[in-house]
Every structure is written in structure tokens, then in C-alpha cells.
Simulated assay, not measured.
Amino acid sequence: MSRTVRILGDALLWVAAALGLLCAVLAVLTSVCGMQVMLFSSGSMEPTIPAGSAALVAPVQAPDVQVGDVVTVARGTGELPVTHRVVGIEDSTSAGARLLTLRGDANAQDDPAPYDVTEVGRVVLSVPGIAPVVSQLGASRMLAPLGVVAAAFVIWGLWPRRERRSRA
């Protein structure tokens, strides 16, 4: 029985370590590289990015955007950004800016007006179904329990273990 518990504990410790490494990598990408994690609540980009997905978005200058890219742009003060596919590009009157016409993959029509942008976020990768988990893990009420669980794993992983002596 104790061998099974030890194996299960070791497996849980490896899973926790992998999740911790993933969090560390995401922290570096967001703080050093300027990337963002976007959570999708609507299905406007289905089937490419279904509702409930999380995506990693990298900053890109407007001149580097191409038709077909999936980008995140700001809509206005107090509004959530929109992530849709670029279906048209025109020059803007502003220096370094472009007018992007966007449309969600699930939408029959383009967005109402082009977006005049100098920088956008380009979707690098998306993971379906993970947005609710990410959202809950980021809630303040979850931080203390997660800290306790992480501390318990560290203590358990570092706790000295008795070696069994073989009978010879």
C-alpha cells in the first residue's frame, strides 16, 4: 500500500512541477516578451478558436500584419478587445498605422468598421476549453488554497524518506 501511495504522490509531484514550469514560462513570456493570455467567451472565431479557449497573443507592428492573421485589437475605452481574422488591409492616414478589416470565422459579415491600428496582438497558439480553469485559478479566492497546496507538495517532496533495507 505504501508503495502505491508513494508512486501516486511522486506522479502528482511531477504534474505539479510541470504546471509550475508552465506558469513560469507564461510569466516570462508575458512580462519580458509583452505577450498576453486572452480568454474567449464568445464563439465568433469558431471552429478555429472555440468559446472557452485561451490564447497566447504576441505584439506585432501593424505593417507586419497580413490578411489571414488572427489578431486582437482594442475597440475603445472601457470595451473588451476583439480577436478576429484579418480579411482586408488598407493604408491609414496616420504614420505607421494600417486600417484592418476583421471578421470572426463564424460571422457572415465583416466587423462594422475597420480598425485604425499601429500595433495588434497576433494569436500564437490557442488551447480549447481551458479558459474557465484559467479564469478560476486567477481569482483572488483561489490564491490562498493554491499556495497551501503548493507548499504541501514542496514539503512532501523534500521530506526525508526511510530507505528499506533488503533482507539478504
Rank of each mutant, 00 (worst) to 15 (best):
D10V: 12
A11V: 14
V71E: 00
M35C: 12
M38A: 15
M142V: 10
A27K: 06
L99F: 01
S92C: 06
W14N: 10
L19Y: 09
S31C: 06
L26Q: 08
L8F: 02
Y115L: 08
G147L: 05
I7A: 13
Q109R: 14
R167Q: 08
V5G: 11
S31E: 12
P132A: 08
A17R: 13
V133W: 13
C33V: 14
R165N: 05
D110T: 10
L26G: 04
S41D: 14
L29H: 01
V5N: 09
D111G: 01
C23Q: 13
F153G: 03
L102E: 02
L13R: 14
V134A: 13
G157Y: 01
L19S: 13
S126H: 05
S44E: 06
L56H: 01
G9W: 04
S53C: 10
R161M: 03
A58W: 03
V73M: 06
V86C: 02
S126Y: 01
D64R: 14
V86D: 03
T48S: 10
A54K: 03
M142T: 13
I49H: 01
I155T: 12
P59C: 01
Q36V: 12
V154Y: 07
L137Q: 06
L39N: 04
A151C: 11
A168I: 13
V25M: 08
R6S: 07
L26W: 09
A131K: 07
S42E: 10
A54H: 07
L19I: 13
C33H: 13
V65W: 05
P63N: 05
L137G: 05
P160C: 01
Q136C: 09
W159Q: 03
E79T: 14
V149I: 15
V87H: 03
Q61A: 15
R162G: 04
L39F: 03
L21N: 11
R165T: 13
V28I: 05
V60D: 04
P47T: 12
M45A: 09
A144N: 10
L29C: 05
V15W: 11
P59A: 03
G138N: 06
V37K: 02
A168L: 14
D69G: 11
R122Q: 12
V148N: 08
S135G: 13
R6M: 08
E79C: 06
R165H: 10
L80M: 15
W159E: 02
R141W: 15
P160V: 02
L22T: 14
F153E: 03
L19G: 15
T72P: 00
L125S: 06
R161L: 04
A11G: 07
S42K: 09
D91G: 04
A95E: 15
R167T: 10
E163N: 09
A152P: 07
G96P: 09
A24L: 15
G129W: 08
S126W: 00
S44G: 04
V120M: 00
V87D: 09
V60P: 04
V133E: 11
V86T: 00
L39G: 01
L56Y: 04
D116V: 07
V124H: 09
L8G: 03
L102W: 00
T72M: 11
P59S: 03
T77C: 10
P63Q: 04
D91C: 03
S44W: 05
V86A: 03
I130F: 12
G20T: 15
G129H: 11
